[in-house]
Computed example of a mutant assay.
Amino acid sequence: MEASGGCGSTHELTEDEKAAGEVVQAAGYRITSYLGEVHRYILDRSMLYGSTESIPYQQAWGVQKVEP
Rank of each mutant, 00 (worst) to 15 (best):
M1G: 11
M1Y: 02
M1E: 06
M1H: 02
E2T: 11
E2L: 09
A3Q: 10
A3I: 03
A3E: 02
S4Y: 03
G5F: 07
G8P: 11
G8Y: 12
G8A: 08
S9C: 13
S9W: 06
S9I: 09
S9D: 03
S9V: 04
T10F: 10
H11N: 01
H11G: 01
E12T: 15
L13W: 04
L13Q: 07
T14A: 14
T14C: 10
T14P: 10
T14G: 15
E15H: 11
D16C: 05
D16K: 14
E17P: 14
E17T: 12
E17N: 13
E17R: 11
K18H: 07
A19D: 03
A19H: 02
A20W: 01
G21Y: 00
G21F: 08
E22Q: 01
E22F: 01
E22M: 02
E22V: 04
V23K: 07
V23G: 00
V23F: 02
V24C: 07
V24T: 09
V24L: 11
Q25S: 10
Q25D: 00
Q25Y: 00
Q25G: 11
G28H: 00
G28Y: 02
G28R: 00
Y29L: 15
R30M: 01
R30N: 05
I31Y: 03
I31P: 10
I31N: 00
T32M: 12
T32F: 00
S33W: 01
Y34C: 06
L35M: 06
L35I: 02
G36K: 04
G36F: 01
E37H: 04
E37A: 08
V38T: 11
V38N: 02
H39I: 12
H39Y: 15
H39F: 01
H39A: 14
R40V: 02
I42K: 10
I42H: 06
L43F: 08
D44M: 04
R45P: 04
R45W: 04
R45E: 10
S46R: 10
S46L: 03
L48P: 05
Y49M: 09
Y49I: 15
G50S: 05
S51Y: 04
S51V: 07
S51T: 13
S51P: 11
S51Q: 10
T52L: 12
T52C: 04
E53C: 11
E53T: 07
S54T: 15
I55Q: 06
I55S: 10
I55L: 15
P56R: 11
P56E: 00
Y57G: 07
Y57D: 15
Y57L: 05
Y57P: 03
Q58C: 07
Q59T: 14
Q59A: 13
A60H: 09
A60M: 08
A60N: 03
W61M: 12
G62N: 12
G62E: 05
V63E: 04
Q64I: 08
Q64S: 14
Q64Y: 10
Q64A: 15
K65F: 12
K65S: 12
K65A: 12
K65Y: 03
V66S: 06
E67A: 13
E67Y: 09
E67I: 14
E67Q: 03
P68A: 05
P68C: 07
P68I: 07
P68F: 05
